[in-house]
Design a binder for these strands. Structure first.
Length: 876
RNA sequence: GGGUGUUUAGCUCAGUUGGUUUAGAGCGCUACCUUGACAGGGUAGAGGUCGGGGGUUCGAAUCCCUCAACACCCACCA
C-alpha cells in the first residue's frame, strides 16, 4: 500500500473517534479494578471552546488515557454548567435583538426561551471536546440544571437551613442595575476610572458657618442622614451637636463624630449615606441613623429623589452638580482617579444596595477544608505556591451570599405564608411546603394560594460546588454503588482563577456531605496568555479560534503544542508556532513508520552487528526514558514528560537507531532486526498515545491488522524493566566520537560521503560500538595505533582520547595550532579553578569525601589532557 | 494600602532539599548538506558575568538582607 509522505490528520480524526466510541472504550462502570476518576470542570453550557479549555482538557485527557492504559478503571465524567448570570445575560441580549424585553416576559416565558437556547447551543462545547480527542464517558454527561442535579441542590439547601447555616440577612450587596441582580464580590471588577472629587457646601443650621464635604458621588447627598467628623479634628470640634442642612433638599441632619473618618482625606469631613455605601451603613448602625434609599432597581432615582425622581443616576449627578453650582454650593471640582466597581458581565457600575439576601455561614464549613489541604495533606494542591493563597482566603472567609435576582437557575425553595420576618418555610416542593407552613403557623386553613415562593435563584456555584458528588447522585443516594466506587475522585484539573469560587467550595462540600475529600489532587494550570503576555479573552480578541487550530494543525499537534509550553501552574504564553512544532513532530513519527514499512525483509539474513548493537542500546535507553517519564507524570510535570518522549522519538529513535539499522539503499533487512525495531516502535506509540491519540492509533493499525480489543487506546502502558546502564554510557561515548568526526569533516570541508580513516592510539576498555562509529562516521578503516609520522591530517579529542584523520584538506597548520592553543587555554583555566578548591584547606576538611574525590579526578583528567595538548603543539 | 509569586541564552522555560566539569532544553538563529523516510528534513555551530547590590559558606542560579521591574490575589478612605 502506498503511504503518503505527509501526514494528514484531517481524514483520520473522526474515523478513530467514532471507532473508540463504537467500541465503548471510554465507558466505565464499577468493576473489580481500581477506579481512576476525574470530573470535568463543567464549561458554561452556552460557551464555546477557548484556549483555556483546550489546555486543561488536553491535560485531563492525557492523564485519563494513561490511567486507562495502566489498567485503571478510568472514568472521566463530562458535563456543563448552567452559568446563571452568563447565560441569562446572553439570552437577554438575544431577546433584545429580537425586540423583546425581559421585563415583558413572565418567568415561565423567559425560562422557555432560555431552555430553547440551551438546547440549541448546549451540546456545542461538548462536541468540540470530542474534536480535541477527549475520552469522556459521554453516557454520563450531566448538566447542573438536570432534574436530579437540581433535586440534590435543593436537598442540600434544606439540610443547611435546618442546620442553621443558611440564614436571611439585610445586607449591603453589589447590585448590577443593568442586569438588575446582585453580584457576588467575586463577580465585581474594579477599574481605575477618572472621576471628580466634588467639594460641596453644607450650611450649618442656625449659623453662618458652612461645612465643606468632598465626595465622588454628589447625587447620593439625597440619601445623606448625617455628617461625620473625627472627634479630635480641631477644625470641626466646635460644631459638635449641631446640625447641617442637606443641599437641594429641605432636610437637616446631625453632625456625628467617629474616628473612622480620615482627617487627611478630602476635607476631613464625611457625608454619611447608609443606604448606599457599606462603610456608611456600618456607621449608620453604630449611630442609629435613618436609612434613606434613593434608587430604583434600575439605577434611577426613586421617590426619595424629590425633583430628580426617575432620572438615571449619572444624569442626576450632572444635573445635581449644575444645580449646586447655581446655588453656589459647589466650591471646587478636582479630578480624582479612583477605582470603581463594575459588573464582570454587564460592565455596569455597581450600586451598593441593601437587600434581603440568603447567606451561608462559612466558618464551620471551612474548618475541615483548611485542615485537609494545609495540615493533614489529605488533598494535594499543585503547584504548592497556591497553598498560601488558599490559606489566606480560607482563614478570612466571609459568609456566602447564595441568592441571585435572576430567573435562570435553581429557585430558592423558601415559601412565604405571611408578612412576618420568619413567616416562611423551606421545603423541597409546594406540597411539603404547605404542610410545613400549616404546622409552623398553626393555621390549618392555609392553602397553596397563601404560599409565595422566593423569587430568587441560587448562585451557580451553589450547584457546582456539589459536582463531584452530584454527578454520581451521591447527595440523594449516599449509599449508591457508583458514589461508593468512584468517590473520592483522583484529580481535579482547572485554572487558578476559580480556586475560591469552585475548588475551595467543592472541598468544603465534600467534607460536609460525604465526610471525605472530593479529590486527592488539585492540579492548577496556568492562564493562557498571548505572546504579549496578555490574558486571552474575548474582549481583547486575542484568543485564537480553537477549532480552526485543530483544523489547521490537527488535534494531536495542538495538544502537543499546548503541552510543550505549559509548565505546571505557570502561565502559558501561547504562540501558534507551537502547534506547527507539534505538526512537524506528527509528521516525523509518520515518516519513521514509512521508512520501516518500506524495507524489504529477508528471512534467512543474519543481523549485522551494527543493527543488533544499536537495538540493544535503544532497548536500554527506552527503559531509562520511560522511568523518567513515569516519574514526571507522578509529579504532574506533563510538559517534561512529553519533552523527554519527544527527544526519545525524534533524536534517539529516528536520528540514531533508524540511521544505524537502515540497510544500504536497495538492500533488504534481516527478519530479526525488523521484528525488534517494530516492537520498539510500538512501545514508542504506546507512550505517545496519551499525547497524540489519533496519529498513534492510526499507525498502530497500519502496522498490523488489529481487532478492536487490540486497539492502542486500551493497550497497556509499558512497565519499566531494569536496563543496562553501561550500555547507555558506552553508546554515549560513541555518539560523542561520531559528533567529533562530523565536526572534523565540517571544519575541513570533507564531504559526508567521502570515506575516511580513523586513528586512535590504542583501544580503551569501554570502547564499544565501533560498528556504529564506522557506519555513521563514514569510516572505512579504523586503526588502533599511532599514525605514521609523515601522514598529513588533523586531530581532535574526545575526553582524553585523541583521534587522527588523514586528509590532504588540511593545509593550514596555523589554524590547527590556534585550535590547540584555545583548547589548552580552556583546560588550564578549568584546572586552575579546580586546584584552587583543592588547595583550600577548609574545602578539603569540610567538603564531603565524594565531592573532594570528584574534584581530584577532574584535576587528574585535566592534567592528562594538558599533556596531550602540549605534545600535539610540540609536534606542529 | 496588605499579601503572594516571578526575574536564568533572541523567545518560552528546566535547574529536585547549596557541591558531576566554567549552568541545561525546546524553538529561533548561522553555516553546510538534499535525487533513496521526512526541507514539516539532516549535520555541525554560535549564543548566558543566572535582574542590580550586599551578606552567610570551603563552595551560591540555589540560603539570608536590600533595591528594581513585572505579574497575580485580597481589601476598597468618601
Amino acid at each position: 500500500m502506498e503511504i503518503p509522505s505527509k501526514f494528514d490528520a484531517k481524514g483520520i480524526e473522526s474515523k478513530w473517534y467514532s471507532y473508540w466510541q463504537k467500541n465503548n472504550f471510554f465507558k466505565s462502570s464499577p468493576d473489580e479494578r481500581e477506579p481512576y476518576t476525574i470530573v470535568i470542570p463543567p464549561p458554561n453550557v452556552t460557551g464555546i471552546l477557548h484556549m483555556g479549555h483546550m489546555l486543561n482538557n488536553s491535560l485531563q485527557d492525557i492523564i485519563v488515557r494513561r490511567a486507562r492504559m495502566r489498567d485503571f478503571n478510568a472514568c472521566w465524567v463530562p458535563g456543563t454548567d448552567h452559568a446563571s448570570i452568563a447565560t441569562e445575560a446572553k439570552v437577554v441580549a438575544k431577546l433584545k435583538s429580537e425586540g423583546i424585553e425581559k421585563s415583558d416576559l413572565t418567568r415561565e416565558e423567559f425560562l422557555k426561551h432560555a431552555w430553547d437556547w440551551t438546547e440549541e447551543y448546549g451540546g456545542v462545547i461538548l462536541e468540540q471536546l470530542k474534536k480535541l480527542g477527549c475520552s469522556c464517558d459521554w453516557d454520563r454527561t450531566k448538566f447542573t440544571l438536570d432534574p436530579e442535579m437540581t433535586a440534590s441542590v435543593l436537598q442540600v439547601f434544606e439540610q443547611l437551613h435546618n442546620d442553621g447555616l443558611i440564614y436571611r440577612g439585610y445586607r449591603m450587596v453589589n447590585w448590577d442595575p443593568e442586569a438588575q441582580t446582585t453580584l457576588s464580590d467575586e463577580e465585581v471588577l474594579y477599574e481605575e476610572k477618572n472621576g471628580n472629587l466634588y467639594h460641596i457646601v453644607y450650611p450649618v443650621v442656625d449659623s453662618d458657618e458652612r461645612v465643606i464635604i468632598a465626595t465622588t458621588r454628589p447625587e447620593t447627598l439625597l440619601g445623606d442622614t448625617a455628617i461625620c467628623i473625627h472627634p479630635e479634628d480641631e477644625r470641626y470640634t466646635h460644631l459638635k451637636g449641631k446640625k447641617v442642612s442637606v443641599p437641594l433638599t429641605n432636610r437637616t441632619i446631625p453632625i456625628i463624630e467617629d474616628d473612622y473618618v480620615a482627617m487627611d482625606f478630602g476635607t476631613g469631613c464625611l457625608k454619611v449615606t447608609p443606604a448606599h455605601d457599606q462603610n456608611d451603613k456600618l456607621l449608620g448602625e453604630k449611630h442609629q441613623l435613618e436609612v434613606i434609599n434613593i434608587f430604583n432597581p434600575d439605577g434611577s432615582l426613586n421617590e426619595n429623589g424629590g425633583s430628580y425622581e426617575n432620572l438615571d443616576r449619572f444624569k442626576a449627578r450632572k444635573i445635581i452638580v449644575k444645580d449646586l453650582e447655581a446655588q453656589q454650593l459647589l466650591v471646587k471640582t478636582e479630578p480624582h482617579r479612583h477605582k470603581v466597581g463594575v459588573s464582570e458581565r454587564t460592565k455596569a457600575v455597581i450600586e451598593p444596595r441593601l437587600l434581603d439576601q440568603w447567606f451561608l455561614k462559612m466558618e464551620e464549613l471551612a474548618r475541615p477544608a483548611i485542615d485537609g489541604v494545609l495540615n493533614s495533606k489529605d488533598i494535594e494542591l499543585l503547584p504548592e505556591k497556591f497553598k498560601n493563597t488558599y490559606r489566606h482566603w480560607m482563614e478570612n472567609i466571609r459568609d456566602w451570599n447564595i441568592s441571585r435576582q435572576l430567573w435562570w437557575g435553581q429557585r430558592i425553595p423558601a415559601y412565604y405564608y405571611g408578612k412576618g420576618k420568619d413567616d416562611y418555610v423551606v421545603a423541597l416542593d409546594e406540597v411539603k411546603a404547605l404542610e410545613k407552613a400549616r404546622s409552623k403557623s398553626g393555621n390549618a386553613s392555609l392553602t397553596m394560594d397563601n404560599l409565595r415562593q422566593d423569587e430568587d435563584v441560587l448562585d451557580t456555584w451553589f450547584s457546582s460546588w456539589l459536582w463531584p458528588i452530584s454527578v454520581f447522585d451521591g447527595i440523594r443516594y449516599p449509599e449508591n454503588e457508583e458514589i461508593q466506587y468512584y468517590y473520592p475522585t483522583q484529580d481535579l484539573v482547572t485554572g487558578p482563577d476559580i480556586l475560591f469560587f469552585w475548588v475551595a467550595r467543592m472541598i468544603m462540600s465534600g467534607y460536609a456531605f460525604r465526610d471525605e475529600k472530593p479529590f486527592s489532587k488539585v492540579y492548577l494550570t496556568g492562564l493562557v496568555r498571548d505572546k504579549k503576555g496578555r490574558k486571552m479573552s474575548k474582549q481583547l480578541g486575542n484568543s485564537p479560534d480553537a477549532l480552526k487550530l485543530i483544523k489547521d494543525y490537527g488535534a494531536d499537534a495542538v495538544r502537543v503544542g499546548l503541552m510543550l509550553s505549559s509548565a505546571a501552574g505557570n502561565d502559558l504564553l501561547f504562540d501558534e508556532t507551537l502547534c506547527q512544532q507539534g505538526k512537524n513532530f506528527a509528521n516525523k513519527i509518520w515518516n519513521a513508520y514509512r521508512l520501516i514499512e518500506g524495507w524489504e525483509i529477508k528471512e534467512d539474513l543474519q543481523a549485522p552487528n551494527v543493527a543488533s548493537e544499536a537495538l540493544e542500546w535503544y532497548e536500554s535507553h527506552f527503559e531509562k526514558t520511560l522511568a523518567w517519564v513515569d516519574e514526571n507524570f507522578e509529579k504532574y510535570r506533563i510538559s517534561d514528560a512529553l519533552m523527554s518522549i519527544y527527544k526519545l522519538v525524534w533524536e534517539d529513535f529516528c536520528s540514531w537507531l533508524l540511521e544505524l539499522i537502515k540497510p544500504e539503499y536497495g538492500e533488504p533487512i534481516d527478519r530479526q532486526s525488523y521484528n525488534k525495531v517494530i516492537a520498539l516502535f510500538e512501545k514508542n506509540l504506546r507512550i505517545l498515545h496519551p499525547f497524540m491519540p489519533f496519529l498513534t492509533e492510526e499507525i498502530w493499525h497500519y502496522i498490523a491488522d488489529r481487532k478492536p480489543e487490540e486497539a492502542l487506546t486500551i493497550a497497556a502502558w509499558p512497565k519499566v524493566h531494569t536496563y543496562d546502564k553501561k550500555c547507555i554510557s558506552d553508546f554515549e561515548l560513541a555518539q560523542q566520537i561520531i559528533g567529533g568526526i562530523r565536526n572534523f569533516r565540517k571544519e575541513k570541508n570533507i564531504s559526508p560521503k567521502e570515506q575516511i580513516s580513523l586513528y586512535l592510539n590504542s583501544k580503551p576498555a569501554n570502547f564499544n560500538y565501533e560498528s556504529a562509529i564506522v557506519k555513521l562516521g563514514g569510516v572505512s578503516e579504523m586503526y588502533y595505533s599511532i599514525p605514521p609520522k609523515d601522514l598529513a591530517g588533523g586531530s581532535f579529542r574526545i575526553n582524553n582520547l585523541e583521534f587522527f584523520i588523514p586528509t590532504n584538506a588540511v593545509e593550514d597548520p596555523k589554524e590547527e595550532k590556534e585550535k590547540l592553543i584555545s583548547e589548552l587555554k580552556y583546560t588550564k583555566g578549568f584546572l586552575a579553578s579546580v586546584e584552587k578548591k583543592l588547595s583550600n584547606d577548609r574545602f578539603v576538611s569540610n567538603a564531603p569525601e565524594k565531592v573532594i574525590e570528584l574534584e581530584r579526578k577532574k584535576a587528574a583528567d585535566a592534567n592528562e589532557k594538558i599533556i596531550l595538548l602540549l605534545k600535539n603543539l610540540e609536534s606542529l
